[in-house]
């Protein structure tokens, strides 16, 4: 009888499994209890996020309530709202408005020039052309941001390539007219708001192109065919189908360009007219003056501005597709 059992592999002895080791039992447990797996995976990043990011941010904002003594240059932990109130002083408010306007115009202009590139990448380019475009968009991000900003100060200088090239095209009168405009102009491109705007747009453009490209890539071609099938000219298809469906991409891109411009303190120092930006103001308060409470108060501004911006973008339906 026992010999028969050993011949047939389907006998009960063959069915019983070999004992499982600890690691196998652990992975069985995780498979059967997905919540446990989730807990294990999420705890470290959430701890990191909570302590390193949220807690330190709150600590920073709390410091904005401390008092700075102008004479002794010392910080005391007497709580006061005066730092936050001072944000609305004319000089400080100027900085906020200047930064905000720059962030908005950089976002709008980036969206305008990013869209055609993103559209071409998503709908027409394929294979090597697409790889080339990805590379061309990302390549500038591989270079140090400060190197690029410095390079632009030279490119935009009076003796720089840009001025030379504009002269070559006999467009110097146009440039001079642009530079004579109040608010935009200056002596040269590198000391004008126009120049600063160009550098910001250049640096943040990839952050606008990629999200728009991603949103256009998700657009099924049959929707565009359906639109033209129903009698819409390409212009109408763009207005009623392509543009509304790419709003999430534009919004995501503009969140990058907007917040990055809002917090930048290098470009405003290197290119453009004198006058502080939010970032450089924080830098000056904290680094040069040692007025930590005022610097902390200033950090609230971009947080509030971005929160307002996000709520506007949300109202536009940018997150409906998420």
């Amino acid at each position: 009888m026992s010999s028969v059992m050993s011949i047939h592999p389907s006998g009960p002895a063959a069915v019983s499994e070999p004992p499982r080791n600890l690691l196998q039992r652990f992975s069985d447990r995780l498979y059967l209890q997905p919540r446990l797996l989730l807990l294990l995976l999420l705890t470290p990043p959430l701890l990191w996020f909570g302590s390193v990011y949220i807690a330190s941010l709150l600590a920073l904002l709390w410091q904005g309530l401390y008092t700075f003594d102008d004479f002794t240059m010392l910080v005391s932990d007497t709580l006061t709202l005066s730092n936050y109130v001072q944000l609305f002083d004319a000089a400080n408010f100027d900085i906020i408005v200047r930064t905000l306007l720059m962030a908005l115009s950089v976002s709008v202009f980036s969206a305008l020039i990013a869209f055609p590139v993103a559209y071409y990448m998503a709908r027409y380019a394929s294979g090597k052309t697409k790889a080339f475009f990805y590379l061309a968009v990302m390549l500038p991000m591989w270079t140090s941001y400060i190197v690029k900003a410095y390079a632009w100060t030279l490119l935009l200088a009076q003796e720089g390539v840009t001025h030379w090239f504009i002269e070559l095209l006999h467009l110097t009168p146009v440039l001079n007219w642009l530079l004579s405009l109040p608010g935009i102009g200056g002596n040269t491109l590198s000391t004008s708001n126009l120049g600063r705007f160009l550098v910001f747009t250049y640096i943040w453009l990839p952050f606008m192109i990629l999200p728009i490209q991603a949103s256009l890539e998700r657009l099924p071609p049959s929707l565009l065919q359906a639109s033209s099938d129903l009698g819409a000219t390409p212009a109408k298809t763009f207005r009623h189908v392509i543009l509304p469906l790419s709003v999430p991409g534009i919004a995501a891109g503009s969140i990058f360009t907007f917040s990055l411009t809002l917090g930048d303190y290098i470009v405003p120092q290197l290119v453009g007219p004198p006058g502080l930006f939010l970032g450089s103001m924080v830098y000056v308060q904290q680094g040069s003056i040692g007025n930590m409470p005022m610097a902390a108060a200033f950090t609230l501004v971009p947080i509030v501005l971005i929160a307002v911006y996000l709520s506007i973008v949300k109202r536009m339906g940018a997150f409906d597709a998420l």
């Binding site: 099924p220 065919q225 359906a226 639109s227 099938d229 129903l230 000219t233």
Partner: peptide, 17 residues
């Protein structure tokens, strides 16, 4: 868009927005 024919698509192609 200049033809008087209309199509019912395989994936329906309804505008999601």
């Amino acid at each position: 868009y200049q033809r008087n024919v209309n199509t019912v698509f395989q994936d329906y192609a309804l505008f999601p927005h």
